Structures are given as structure tokens and as C-alpha cells.
Amino acid sequence: MLDKMLYNTILSQTYSPCGKYLVAGNIYGQLAVFDLVNIFNPVVEQITSDFNKPKHIHLLESESQICSLVTTDKFLIAGTVNEISGWDWKAILSSKLTKPSWTIKIQPQSLIEKCDINCLWYKKDEGKLYAGCGDNKIYAYNLEDGSLVSTYEGHSDFVHCLHSNGQQLISAGEDGLVLLWDLRVKKSYNKIEPHTNSKIARPDIGKWVGAAALGDDWIVCGGGPRLSLWHLRSLDAVTVFDIPDHGIHVSFFQDDCVFAGGAAKHLYQLSYSGDVRVELPVSATTVYSAVYRTSPHKVLAIAGSSPEIDICTSFNYRDQVLHFR
């Protein structure tokens, strides 16, 4: 029997609140828990051949693909198909996974039978969880009681990503739209359509936008259209990044740079003006997740269409490769 884990695709990652553990979710409904302390500081005499493999692999009861992960101080939250579930971190770190502490069901009002929860964003100051879904909507839930607080409608196809900065939220979707929201209002107040810009459009790849992020003064987004930097107030495209990708799924701001990856051989670190500062080789043929943390370790974890997760403490090279198998 062919080992399906050789064809593993990791869609999502997050760190534990203490930063000592990395959790990754795959297309088979599995959660892998990696002990970063032992990985970064191994006892030489006790190193075994599987020290870079998961401490635990948990299989969700639904076995639905784990599209998105996010953490709070108390819970690991997973978005799968038609539902969002939260586990106490103690349960995640134990050898056997119990039933979730709570579950939120999402029931699309359209003819869609299955609704992927493609992205999750937690706003700690509000205690709210935002979910971008396959029914083209964004839902906001109060995590104290699981109640639905708001529904944001504006996309005409499924939502790929969410990112927030203050009271602003940005979303991007398969419809090629990048929408800006004031979280106090249920309608978007502005939008970008990268595929309508001739310098950015790539009709052969598509108009979908797979990643978007907000900075204080900037927006970075990409997907089928090229990765591009936009001025937040004027919504003018300032920089079109010249990198050899076939679709962007990850983009974020860090240390006055843009990080981006997707269907390419590298994760890129770029200046706002478009200079390539670092081309970081990656194991995955397509990157679907890259998560960064500064404490207790400075670490970037990169994952995608591969059973391997690349770990970097310096953005110039891979320090280690973890194995989700």
C-alpha cells in the first residue's frame, strides 16, 4: 500500500501560547505537535533518528482537512469543513486527543454542501474570532459564548485569507477582490482588484488573490496576479515584485520587509522597493503556510505540499527540517 504521508500537504500551522510547540495541520485531518525546545536544544547523548518528528500526531474525528489554525492563550482552534473546533492546550499536548472543548458549526445558506474554513484570525483585544469561508462570507464569533456577532458579505467567491491591523480587516478571495473593512461596519469601505492592473495581471494563472496583509501604511497582496505593494490611503500600486512564482499563497510584513511564497522554489524576503534580499530554498513545491515567532525562539516555520516543514532561525538558510510523517 502506497504511503499516503509521502504525498502529505500541510495547509496550516500555529505556535502554542508559550512558543515551545509548533502545531501543523494537514489534508488528512491530522494535527502534528512538534516540541521545539527538544528540537532546538537536543541532548546530544539522547538524540534519536526521530528527534525532528512530531511528539504527537492526533487524528480528528471528522478526518476533514485542517484548512486553518490559530491559537489563543487557552485554546488551539482549527478550521476544517463546516466547523471550527477549540481544544484546551493541555489536551493538544497530551498523548491522546480528547473531544474538543467547543465546536462552532457553519451551515451555508446556499447550495454548497461543504464549506471550508479557509482562514482564521483572532483579535485578542476583542475576544473575537474571524473566519473566512468557502461560502464567500466572513463570520465573527464571540469566543466567550460562541455566539455569532457579525457576518461580512462582499465576496462573490470563497475567501482565501484574512488579516487585521487595529480596527481594519483585509480579506482576499477567489473572486480577485481584496476588500478593506472597518470592523464596526458590516460593509467593506474600499477594495483593490489587482487583476485589472495590466502590470500586475497574469490571466494565464487567474485573477484569484491567495494572500493579503495590512501594514500601517501599506497593503501587500498576490495570487494569480503578481505580488504587489499598495499604498493604503491612495490604493495605488507602488511596487510590483519580480519573482518567479506561479501563484502566491503567503505574504506578510516583518522587520520592514515583505515575505512571500507560493508555487515557487523559494520563500522570498523583499524590500518595499522590490529588491530580493533573500531567496530561501523550501522543501514544498507550493508553500501554503509560513508562521513567525520571536519568543522564546526567533523562528520561521514554512510548510506546504510536502511532509517536510522548514525551520529557520536566520532568514538566510534553513536550520532544520521537521518531518510530518
Rank of each mutant, 00 (worst) to 15 (best):
G127L: 07
G127R: 08
L129E: 06
L129K: 04
C133Y: 03
G134A: 04
G134H: 06
D135A: 06
D135R: 09
N136V: 11
N136D: 15
N136Q: 11
K137Y: 05
I138P: 08
I138C: 05
Y139I: 10
N142F: 01
N142T: 12
N142M: 05
L143R: 00
E144Q: 12
S147K: 13
L148V: 04
V149N: 02
S150L: 05
S150Q: 14
E153F: 02
E153I: 13
E153W: 02
S156F: 14
V159T: 10
H160K: 14
C161D: 13
L162Q: 09
H163V: 09
Q167F: 07
Q168V: 07
L169F: 08
L169A: 10
A172H: 05
D175K: 01
D175R: 01
G176E: 10
L177Y: 11
V178A: 01
L179A: 01
L179M: 05
L180R: 06
D182H: 12
Y189C: 05
N190F: 02
K191L: 13
I192R: 02
I192C: 01
E193C: 09
P194F: 00
P194Y: 01
H195P: 07
N197V: 03
N197Y: 01
S198K: 14
K199N: 15
I200D: 04
A201K: 10
R202Q: 13
